[in-house]
Design a protein around this nucleic acid. Sequence first.
DNA 1: GTTGCAATGATATAGTGTTTCATTTATGTG
DNA 2: CACATAAATGAAACACTATATCATTGCAAC
Lengths: 158, 158
Amino acid sequence: MTGFETHDHGDCIARGLAQAERYCAAQGLRLTPARRRVLEILLEEHRAMGAYEILDRLRAEGRGAQPPVAYRALEFLTTHGFAHRIERLNAFVACTHAQDRHAPAFLICRACDRVTEAEVAPTAGELGRAAEAAGFTIERTVREAVGLCPACAGAGPA
Amino acid sequence: MTGFETHDHGDCIARGLAQAERYCAAQGLRLTPARRRVLEILLEEHRAMGAYEILDRLRAEGRGAQPPVAYRALEFLTTHGFAHRIERLNAFVACTHAQDRHAPAFLICRACDRVTEAEVAPTAGELGRAAEAAGFTIERTVREAVGLCPACAGAGPA
DNA sequence: GTTGCAATGATATAGTGTTTCATTTATGTG
DNA sequence: CACATAAATGAAACACTATATCATTGCAAC
C-alpha cells in the first residue's frame, strides 16, 4: 500500500489493539489501561500526535494526566513496536505493521502532516553501508523523508 | 574516510571557514559575524552541539546571546549546508563535506556521542523507493543510525 | 503475609524552540 | 548624498517538549 490514499480504517483500530493484546499476552507484557488507551488514541487519530496532544485527550477523559503519564505509555509502546517516534516532528504514530522490532521509514507531508510508514531492514541501504565501512554497530535507525504527499502536491505546492 | 578514527583536525577549522566564505561570496550570502562564529564553534568542537550549548559559548565571549541568536545562525548554516541538524539529538554539527544542498546520513554513537557523516543522493535507497511507490515528493531526508562506534563497542558494550 | 518489583500519582524542573516588535545595518536607486 | 527597501540583530516573553524525583499502589512469587 502507498499509504496516502483515502482511507477507511473502520476496523484497523480494533485490529491494532487486538494484535497488541495478543503480543503482550504472549510475551508477558502488561498492556495496562493507560498504555492501551494511548495506543487506542493513536490508532483512532491515525496520524502523528505530540505527547501533549495525547495528554489533552487523556485529560478530557477525566484521567489525571501529568506529562509522565503520556511519556511512560509512549515509551512502552515504542519500545515494543506498537508505536513509533517521528524524530522530525517530536511526535508519535501507531505502527501500521507487524509486531516485533523492525526498522521503520516514514514519509512526512509538510503540508497536511500526514505520515506513512514503510518497513526496511535496519542495516540495509546507505546507513548500513556507511556503518559497515566505519565499523559501526547499528542498534536503531531513523529514516524520515519530508516533502509533499500526492494530494498536497497536486493542490499547489505552497 | 570512516569518520571515527582519531582525528587531528588542525586546519579543518580554517578550511571549513574559508570554504564557507568563498561559497557565500559567490552566492551573495552574508556570513555575518554571528553566523561565522557559530560555524567556527561547531568546527572547533567537531561534534554535535545543542543550541543552548552554543549559546553558552557565545555568552562566555560577552556577546548578547538570547536563544534566537543561536537559532537564527543555525538556520542560516543548515539552510545553506554549512551545518546539519541531528534530529535524534536535537543538535547540530558542522558539515564535513562539499557545499550546496546534499542529503547527509549520520552514524551516532550512543556511548561517546560522536557523529560521523556520509553523503547520499536524497532520493536514493529505501526512502526513495517508498516515496516513488506513494507518489511522494521528497524535499529533505533524515537518515540517522544510533549504535556503537568501533572504539566504544570494543571498550565493552554498556 | 511479606518481600520484591513494576507501574502509577504527583510535583517540580530542565531542555528546546518560537513569537513579537523595535532597532540597526547593509544595499540599491534617484 | 539622500532616501527607500530589505536583511539582520537585539531584547523580552513565551510555548512546547521532556525528565527527575519521590511517595504510593498493585501485583506476583515465595
